[in-house]
Amino acid sequence: MLELGDYGTSDFLQILRRRHPELLATLDAPANTAGIHHYEGTTVLAVVYDEGIVIAGDRQATEGYQVGERRIQKVYQIDRHSAIAIAGAAGPCIEMAKLFQVEVEFYEKTEGVSLSLEGQANFLAHLVRSNLGLALQGLIVLPLFAGYDVKRQHGRIFKYDAIGGRYEEDDYYAIGSGGKDARATLKKRYRPKLSQHDALGIVAEALWDAADEDIATGGPDFIRKIFPMMNLITEAGVSEIPDDTVAALYRELIARLEQPR
């Protein structure tokens, strides 16, 4: 039966909490999950360039010291101008990305206007905070949120800590098990006003270095044709870089690394 009661709210999470708390089980009601095997997502990053922002991630999920999944998706489009990349316990991560996407779209459809980028970033902090119970048991879910701010006309990056703290980065950021290694590369390579090609180049290199240093992060896999996922967000919207282009970026990088120094 159709319920008209919740008319006043554009908050999907609030409706689920009230009517279908069972659908939020992993978010709201943590059982004792410590020590249970699960998949972990590893390195994701975002880099601002002159036309917008690149958001990317490797494709590997690990289960302990094993490869759990080789082509997991860690970057999800949220609305026309934003995307989220996730690191941590894969199951709850993907669920958080899905819920976040529905929340933002629900707001847009009911209100008739898009939720602002800042509003999306704040709501995500709230979702991360809801996950605290799981985080305390070691099942941390950490998002990296990136978007093109249509009003301010530039790319923006938001990072979070496990208790829902929200912090903005101006140029680039990387999180996950190989995040520190990726950041080291980005720190040396980043320049303001990068072109799209250069931005994709340093993204490929940062993920390469993360895979090189961190056992959990996957590199480009030319045999299985699995390559890191890279999305561009510009005024025109979110677009995914085709695998062929990413493969070419890596061939370029490998050719450079092979040159004798």
Binding site: L2, L4, D6, Y7, F12, H20, L23, F106, K109
Partner: peptide, 17 residues
């Protein structure tokens, strides 16, 4: 308007579930 919003809500709940 009331039916529109209720429809979006039920659809999103079903699609999420």
């Amino acid at each position: 308007e009331a039916l529109r919003v209720a429809g979006i809500r039920e659809a999103e709940i079903k699609g999420f579930r």
